[in-house]
Structure formats: C-alpha cells, structure tokens
C-alpha cells in the first residue's frame, strides 16, 4: 500500500492553512453591514508565512484557505468563492511583486505594513475586476469601488 509522507514543510503549511481557515470561518460568522464585506484577517496569516517562509509557502496557505474555507462554508464554486479566489490570486501577485522587488533591490524593501496595504489594494482590484467582467458589466460598479477603497485606506 503506498504511503504518503508529509515533510516538515508540508506540516508547516498545513498548520498555517488550518489557522487561516479558522480565522476565515470565524470571520464569516461575524455580522457585516453589507453581505460580502469582511475584515479579511485571515490574510494576516498569508503575510506572516510570506515573510517567514517565502512566496511559495504563502501561495499554498492562501489558496488552501480559499479552497478549504469555501468547502467548509458551503460556497465552493459559487460567486462568493470566485470573488474570494480572484482576490487571493491578485493579492498573491501583488505580494510576489512587492516581495520580489525588495529582494532584487534592497532599497525598495517593503515591510509587513507596505506589503499588507499593497495586497489589500490588489485584493479589491482583483475582486472588482472579476465582478465587472463576470457579474455586473456596468461602469456604475466602479462608483462603489472608490467608496470602498476610501474605507480600506
């Protein structure tokens, strides 16, 4: 019988992903003024993993959170999940760019603060792009974008 052996890195990713999923689910139980708007505290875990273990581990944790979190909440492959995934992918791209730039050019190194702002902006941009491209192809959507950007900044 073939056996699966988990390496130390696998276990670490699983631990952090479990932590992120817990926060993700706890957060979805919080009441929100508007459906779909949430603080996004689970992204803190992604950021910590990125700074400690690098981009690949952070991507694993973020994507595992999106997939497993949506399976547990029952939103897998629903619009909520799509928005969550597009936000996670966009913020991962931004994190990779910001983190990679800091590696190549140390003068432009970002700390957790700058990385989180960058990732948050990219997260919303990704979600708005998907919402515009897929769900509501009306420019009125972007009138909403600026008020949401305002609140998050």
């Amino acid at each position: 019988m073939p056996t699966l052996t988990a390496t130390r890195e696998d276990m670490r990713i699983a631990w952090f992903a479990a932590l992120a999923i817990t926060i993700h689910i706890a957060e979805s139980a919080l009441p929100s003024p508007l459906p779909g708007i949430k603080p996004g505290l689970a992204n803190v875990i992604t950021l910590v993993v990125l700074l400690r273990y690098g981009l690949a581990a952070a991507a694993w944790v973020a994507l595992l959170r999106v997939f497993a979190g949506s399976l547990l909440l029952g939103t897998f492959l629903s619009p909520t999940f799509m928005l969550s995934l597009s936000g996670a992918l966009a913020s991962l791209c931004a994190l990779g760019a910001g983190y990679g730039l800091g590696r190549v050019w140390p003068a432009a190194r970002l700390s957790a603060l700058g990385l989180s702002v960058l990732a948050a902006l990219a997260h919303m941009a990704g979600q708005f792009w998907l919402a515009y491209a897929w769900f509501i192809p009306h420019p009125g959507l972007f009138y909403l974008a600026c008020s949401i950007y305002c609140r998050c900044s």
Binding site: S111, G114, V117
Partner: peptide
C-alpha cells in the same frame, strides 16, 4: 516603516 512602505501608503 521602510521608505518603500511610506511610498506605498
């Protein structure tokens, strides 16, 4: 807060 952080903010 690195210099790049302040620029991003």
């Amino acid at each position: 807060p690195t210099r790049a952080d302040i620029v991003i903010l």
